[in-house]
Design a protein around this nucleic acid. Sequence first.
DNA 1: TTATTATATAGATAATTATCGATTTGTCAA
DNA 2: TTGACAAATCGATAATTATCTATATAATAA
Lengths: 101, 101
Amino acid sequence: MKLIVVNTVDFAKALADETRQKIMQLCCCQQLSVNEIVEALDVAQPTVSHHLKILKNADLVSAERRGKQVLYTLNQKHLAAGCCQVAENFAPEYPIEEVRE
Amino acid sequence: MKLIVVNTVDFAKALADETRQKIMQLCCCQQLSVNEIVEALDVAQPTVSHHLKILKNADLVSAERRGKQVLYTLNQKHLAAGCCQVAENFAPEYPIEEVRE
DNA sequence: TTATTATATAGATAATTATCGATTTGTCAA
DNA sequence: TTGACAAATCGATAATTATCTATATAATAA
């Protein structure tokens, strides 16, 4: 039982881009190659690689080489940990399971 | 019972700055004037006002004028809602109350 | 080996944003 | 009123970052 420690500034910066959130959405519950992501979006391949690097540095995706391809998938656990950390730091009075009103 | 809807890109962008997170930390459970925030940080007053505006546009702080001063306080509920929204969008397999490991 | 495909990196540029000093606006007291 | 203080806005600059083209690296097949 180890606590995942998240730097909330780095976490938020990694999330703070529309293209990255689209990428995250795409590989949320599946492994996708870089090219599949490129085809799903409207940006050049190096741009996608750039964003994947940022997401990987923030531990928000993990990569696995499969032959010529590299498959990326969202690291949901780390993402959830980041959300929790932000909520704990900045919303101590609102346990996150009670936000809906 | 109304659901708070959060644009997760705007939410993340508002969080994605160290100075803003310091401001959020400062006025997390209390009302602070702009000057009090300026004194607690190492940035100029217009810079603080700039960040407060961004936080306010993202609904992360609310402001209340009190004589000459304007008191800011963190909107914890909206912050928690943003965290939930991000977690729901990107970590459906990890209910956020079960993240610790 | 060489050719082909997939991805990453390098370098340049454009866009965004953080910061500051100067000024304006708002509030109140004398 | 006027003066003083608090905060917001303006305009300029610096720093960061997103994007692209061109090229390099990696893996595989012929």
